[in-house]
């Protein structure tokens, strides 16, 4: 059955994930519609990062099902390249390719992986650099950029693949407080353009501002979720309340 935009673009059903004996995800279910922005919060070790890494198959799952645009990830015939083209991912540590300039970092995947025309890719890459407000830094190497700038290059690098969904894994956790804002502004722009985003974050103010829904995970399960207003002001579960009281 082909996927249509009225169905969830990402759908998790009773997902179980273990690393050896340790069960990290214990039955996670979640639906994300196209254009939605979803934030996942929770204490360290609650499985947030593992959860979004499963969505682009960086981690495999042992039980349940994950579909992206209707494509089941546990299908042995899964086209990994097609999946990764649809789902972009940005990491906590940026993970840029240190031997390539910012612009080359953005251009490489479309040229090498998607075999697109170099000249066209360059035009798009320059536009993306502008979009993440890094005009003029095209020829800088990652080591010459600040953390916030590197993270924005990483966002541009993912966007160059024209993904339908963006996953953000604690993308501001390694940044100086001053540079956090510039990255958040970039993500906000994306969300405003209708990009489907799933963020693991500790920035509660930001989650409240941009999320359509906030999920609170603890010890591998979703404890509570809802629209940010009711979630932050009117949490029901004692664990959520305790977590929010510690953080806010």
């Amino acid at each position: 059955m082909p996927w249509t935009p009225d169905q969830p673009i990402i759908s998790l059903k009773n997902v179980h994930k273990s690393f050896g004996q340790t069960e990290v995800l214990r039955g996670i279910s979640m639906d994300v519609m196209k254009g939605e922005v979803v934030c996942i919060i929770g204490p360290s070790g609650s499985g947030k990062s593992t959860l979004i890494r499963c969505i682009n198959a960086l981690n495999d799952i042992q039980g349940g099902s994950i579909t992206v645009e209707g494509q089941e990830l546990r299908d042995p015939k899964l086209d990994l390249l097609a999946l990764r083209k649809k789902v972009g991912m940005v990491f906590q540590q940026y993970n840029l390719f240190p031997h390539k300039t910012a612009l080359e970092n953005v251009m490489m995947a479309p040229i090498k992986v998607l075999k697109q025309n170099r000249a066209e890719v360059e035009i798009r890459a320059r536009a993306l650099m502008k979009k993440v407000r890094l005009e003029g830094k095209e020829d800088a190497y990652p080591g010459e950029l600040s953390g916030g700038q590197q993270q924005r290059v990483a966002i541009a690098r993912s966007l160059a693949m024209n993904p339908d969904v963006m996953l953000f894994d604690e993308v501001t956790a390694a940044l100086d407080p001053e540079t956090v804002k510039e990255v958040l502004v970039t993500i906000k722009d994306l969300a405003a353009e209708g990009m489907t985003c799933i963020l693991v974050t500790h920035e509660m103010g930001f989650a409240r501002e941009i999320a359509d829904r906030v999920y609170f995970t603890d010890r591998g399960v979703i404890v509570e979720y809802g629209p940010p207003q009711s979630f932050f002001d009117d949490a029901k579960d004692p664990r959520t309340k305790q977590f929010l009281s510690q953080i806010l």
Binding site: L81, R84, M89, N95, F97, V113
Partner: peptide
């Protein structure tokens, strides 16, 4: 490992990762 993972997430094959990322570094 994280640099290699970033390339994986961008759809690079094992061979492409070796040639364009791992080997030059």
């Amino acid at each position: 490992k994280a640099t290699i993972e970033a390339a994986e997430a961008l759809g690079y094959t094992r061979l492409q990762i070796y040639r364009y990322i791992v080997l030059p570094l």
